[in-house]
């Protein structure tokens, strides 16, 4: 990341996607459904977030997918770096957390 703060470069769209993943929408189509963004925006943005180390992807186990009779999905989760970035992003976009509430906020 060349030592540059990532949060300064996150656009509102990228912040929404990051927040959606943080809120538990952990695969592409569910992020699309949550944010209302088209697929051509969501997937490239997720690749950039993963490249920047804010999210991590992991393939679902084949046995689970087989049990549900569907192809295995690629799941995403927010990294520690991503969480600290989100904290900074909330200051820049205060409504983000209310738009897409995270599990911690819902419990509170």
């Amino acid at each position: 990341m060349s030592g540059m703060p990532v949060e300064a470069k996150l656009s509102h769209t990228a912040a929404m996607i990051l927040q959606a993943i943080h809120a538990g929408h952990i695969y592409g189509f569910s992020v699309m459904a949550m944010t209302g963004l088209p697929s051509g925006t969501v997937y490239p943005a997720m690749r950039r977030l993963e490249r920047d180390g804010l999210i991590l992807s992991k393939w679902e186990q084949q046995s689970i997918a087989d049990a549900e009779q569907r192809p295995p999905r690629k799941y995403y989760r927010v990294t520690r770096n991503g969480k600290s970035t989100l904290e900074a992003v909330y200051k820049r976009y205060p409504l983000l957390e209310k738009m897409i509430p995270s599990p911690e906020m819902e419990q509170a």
Binding site: P38, G40, Y43, R73
Partner: peptide, 28 residues
């Protein structure tokens, strides 16, 4: 593999949206 799995999900839930969804693959 990721896009075909996602496309499967779209087809299962909102089949008419599958074509619009797949055009995003071109962009990606």
């Amino acid at each position: 593999a990721e896009w075909s799995a996602e496309l499967w999900q779209v087809c299962a839930e909102q089949k008419p949206a599958a074509l619009a969804f797949s055009t995003g693959a071109l962009q990606d």
